[in-house]
Design a protein around this nucleic acid. Structure first.
Length: 141
DNA sequence: GCCAACGTTGGC
DNA sequence: GCCAACGTTGGC
C-alpha cells in the first residue's frame, strides 16, 4: 500500500464536506497539474492518504482511502485530466500543522514542506507513521 | 492583500 | 526548442 496527501482549500472543499460524503466518497476533481495527476494515476484502491487544509488552517486534519482508480475528470472535457475517488476514514484527534512538519526533522523532507504548490503528492511510509503518531491516531497498517 | 515560487502558454 | 509573459497557488 502507498500513501498520499491531498490538499484542499476549506472554502472550496473541506474535511467536513468529505466526511459528510461518508463511504460513498467523492471525486478528487479539478486537478490541473501534471505532477498531481501523475500521482493519482499511480494510486490503487485501498491506498491511504492525508487530507490537508491549505490557506488559513495549514494542517493535516484527517485520513482518507482511495475508492476508485484514476478516471476522466467529470468537471472537464479535456481528456488530459483524470482523478481518483476518495472517502474519509478518520479525523485526526490532533491536527498536524505545516509548522509541525517543518520543525520535526523526521518530516522536514516532506513534499508538503518543500513544494508548497503541489496539490496531490506522495507521502513515505515513515512520514505516514510519524504523522499518525503526532496526530493521535493509532498506527494503521 | 501581497508576493514568491512555479507551471503553462505562446511567440519566435 | 527556447524563453518571456502570464496565471495560479499558497504561505506569510
Amino acid at each position: 500500500m502507498r500513501y498520499w496527501l491531498f490538499k484542499s482549500e476549506p472554502s472550496t472543499w473541506s474535511w467536513d464536506d468529505q466526511v459528510a460524503k461518508g463511504d460513498a466518497g467523492e471525486e478528487w476533481d479539478g486537478v490541473r497539474n501534471y505532477q498531481a495527476r501523475n500521482a493519482m494515476r499511480e494510486m490503487k484502491v485501498g491506498d491511504r492518504g492525508f487530507f490537508y487544509h491549505s490557506q488559513k488552517e495549514k494542517a493535516i486534519v484527517g485520513t482518507v482511502a482511495v475508492t476508485a482508480e484514476a478516471h476522466p475528470d467529470s468537471t472537464t472535457d479535456d481528456p488530459r485530466w483524470e482523478c481518483v475517488d476518495i472517502k474519509a476514514l478518520d479525523t485526526l484527534p490532533t491536527p498536524v500543522t505545516l509548522d509541525d512538519c517543518k520543525t520535526d526533522p523526521r518530516l522536514s523532507h516532506m513534499v508538503l514542506v518543500n513544494n508548497t504548490r503541489l496539490s496531490v503528492q506522495p507521502v513515505s511510509e515513515d512520514e505516514w507513521q510519524v504523522i499518525c503518531e503526532k496526530g493521535g491516531l493509532a498506527t494503521q497498517a
